[in-house]
Design a protein around this nucleic acid. Sequence first.
DNA 1: ATAATTTATGAAATCGATACCAAATATATT
DNA 2: AATATATTTGGTATCGATTTCATAAATTAT
Lengths: 334, 334
Amino acid sequence: MATISDVAKLAGLSVSTVSRVINDSPHVSPKKRALAKEAMDQLGYVPLPAARQLRGSSSKSLAVVVPRIVNPFFSYLIDSIERTLISADFNTIIVQTFGNKDQELGALELLKKQQVDGVILCSIENQWSVIKEYLKYGKIVLANEYLKDLPIPMIYANQYEGLKSGTEYLLKQGFSKIAYATGRKKLSIAPLGSDFDSDRFNGFQDALQEAKLSFNSNWLFYDAHTEEDGNKILMEILKMTDKPDAIIAGSDEVAAGIVESARNNGVSVPSQLGVLGIDDQPMASKLNIPLSTIKQPVNEMGIKAAQLMIAELNGEGERNTTPLELKVISRQSA
Amino acid sequence: MATISDVAKLAGLSVSTVSRVINDSPHVSPKKRALAKEAMDQLGYVPLPAARQLRGSSSKSLAVVVPRIVNPFFSYLIDSIERTLISADFNTIIVQTFGNKDQELGALELLKKQQVDGVILCSIENQWSVIKEYLKYGKIVLANEYLKDLPIPMIYANQYEGLKSGTEYLLKQGFSKIAYATGRKKLSIAPLGSDFDSDRFNGFQDALQEAKLSFNSNWLFYDAHTEEDGNKILMEILKMTDKPDAIIAGSDEVAAGIVESARNNGVSVPSQLGVLGIDDQPMASKLNIPLSTIKQPVNEMGIKAAQLMIAELNGEGERNTTPLELKVISRQSA
DNA sequence: ATAATTTATGAAATCGATACCAAATATATT
DNA sequence: AATATATTTGGTATCGATTTCATAAATTAT
């Protein structure tokens, strides 16, 4: 590998001058500048980032942390983040946590190791108390998820309003016994929390309340993520004596599983069971019964997340972003 | 940021000794080893990769290059590669080319810049003559795509046999006027080439020939990638006087588009038009008309690609891998 | 007890770049 | 023409680690 001294030697210049040429610094005569450039591409020289970094230059890289890229919600989110970052001349390092705390920590360690200038977290596995320690080493932006009153930029969708509209949509369609499936683990979801999942649930509950309807807590399903989970949920519903007439699934995948099992068990959708997804993934419209769903503003969220990070790195941090709106997409499943 | 000298100072040791502790080198007394370790985690010290790299240590990182991660075929491929690499203690850097030659070159430059030890190419945008220059700087492994007679490890699926079986399947189902859509640009596909696309086409042609059927070149559609392309293809078929009775689409996306437009235009699938996809993406089974398709061995391919790379880095390079087999999945579209 | 090894330790060179400083050269001002 | 100022240029310290080398201490062999 050619180094800067090789270039200097070949060009008959000092390393200082070559370095100036590399960095487009002033105070270099046109002649020598040309000489240096010629030597550089004759040797196919590229400055070693490790050496530059050691002298304190920024990495021009950002990490984007997601649970898994095979989840379309996240792959589209990354797509939109990366496109925005490319145009600002940043490299994107995609980190999958696979839902693992340590993997997330590993991404944060990239800050300490100066591998990246910032981290865009699209999910949170660790406690804020441990995450915040990394603010010493670089910028952190939250996308999709959020935590209240944090001193970092956040962009997220208004899950409360989204679920409220979604629920109201179901009510308007004539459904009244609405079940609810969440990705959250079976813990206290009831107390008015202030996170992603609670917001959704609160929006759902408030819409119900405004319609003077009560919620049967048997119709609450936890830990639902995959299509299989959806299958199981339908089987459980079948066993109930007091059955819901509609269900809001935590994601399109779960909704797809419910619809699938419904078909296999002779439950007609939406007449016997309305199914409303969340996300609006590409497959939603293609299902056997095209899925009505609450669309997440993935693209806008990605763009905004990237912009927030860029602003943050420029010291023009923005703390108060307005949440993005979800939108009910009416198809055939509800 | 704490440096190794900070640690040394705090522990009352020399940097050399601390370095030995960091790297588990011998010749350090247990006492001092303990002392160093204590100082290290008191300061939350992590060695700076840039500094280590400068001294010539390996990055323990590998790049995986794909066109786009929103394409499920590639996101699943990455998933399986990354899982395998994690267990071998390698970092995965995902690079999206967006079909752009320069982005691919950028990934290859990572080798020169010593950012990665190797690159797994899951698609090829540049000519081999330009790619091979990078072999000087690190290992390159080809996954999914392949080029003949290259001196690097490759793993790919037997597209020829896959398409041959797929075509035979269609014939057995009673179809005989089979159209073909390829992702390739409209160039000469006819001469027996030796790449991905040609293999597929040759398998298709040979199956036809063995059945003594001829191929109508009007039934060849180029540059088909998206669902929209699928829509267009169906519209074109509608206009034909001599219509095909089945079509092999270059991917499930294209197939989904064809099926969708068929429904919208009153063409019944599969009775009026059989549609066979390729890939077996998750959505394939969920379509309105569940898609018959030729399944790619994505998971095995990812695992093998990662293993090939690891072997290559250990100097146990393997040149002759047997191609993986595709498999016809019979559902309802054909 | 003395010599021969082995183990433990630290000082200093090194990796490849950047940036400060001083010297040399060119240009402008009087 | 002499002095002041600005522009070019190269030498060298520096970033944070690793590694070689020399030296000191401990262990083993004689």
